[in-house]
Amino acid sequence: MNILDVKNLTAGYGDFQALFGINLEIGQGETVAIIGSNGAGKSTFLKSVAGLLIEHSDDIVFKGENIGTLPAHKVVKRGIALVPEGRRLFPSLSVEENLLMGGYNKRKGPWNLERIYSLFPILKEKRRNPGTALSGGQQQMVAIGRGLMSNPDLLLCDEISLGLAPTTVKDIYDALPTIQKDGTAVLLVEQDINRALSVSDRIYCFQEGRVSLEGKPDAVSREEIKAAYFGM
């Protein structure tokens, strides 16, 4: 059974429609990447699933339950965590407090402070610092750790490599196998196509609010991706 089933999702902001009938599914423990150019609707999609966006059709089924109408703070209790674009750390909270905020809902699971610190040791060193005093890569680690602290069954990651140096991106993606090991499904939005292809079981390409391509990384050709990405 799929952990997430999205059928014919439409969404938008006020008069502006951003998604036009998205179908997307994620299997148990699967890692799926969404690629697409700016404005293709990737972030809108993640926000809809996470419950941050109000104006969308309500056909999002998670673990057999329709969560389409649930607000964000209830969605996270069902087991979906979103690592938001731009990290969005709480500036007046320390690194450790940021992580603890992630565990606010007290869901049971494998993740706790100690495990986050062993996944990203640098954070233990800096745990008393304000979250915003860290480098971009370290901040991203806090954001991911904060998401994991809610012990999600599905982790949504929005552009976690954006604006980071290649070596830093590698450090962050090195954590992925550990996350997957517990059976956590991951949905990544990633601008770096090569990265997306190499880490995911399946990819979706969004273009102007629609799915333009879907498949396993080794089953889709470069040309297909190019066409789906740029709409040529």
């Binding site: 941050l52 703070h73 209830k74 979103l82 938001p84 905020m101 606010y104």
Partner: peptide, 16 residues
């Protein structure tokens, strides 16, 4: 304090 910082993101933590 988290709510004071960022009313949207705090909802992702399960805070209503």
């Amino acid at each position: 304090r988290a709510t004071s910082d960022d009313q949207e993101t705090v909802r992702l933590m399960g805070v209503g």
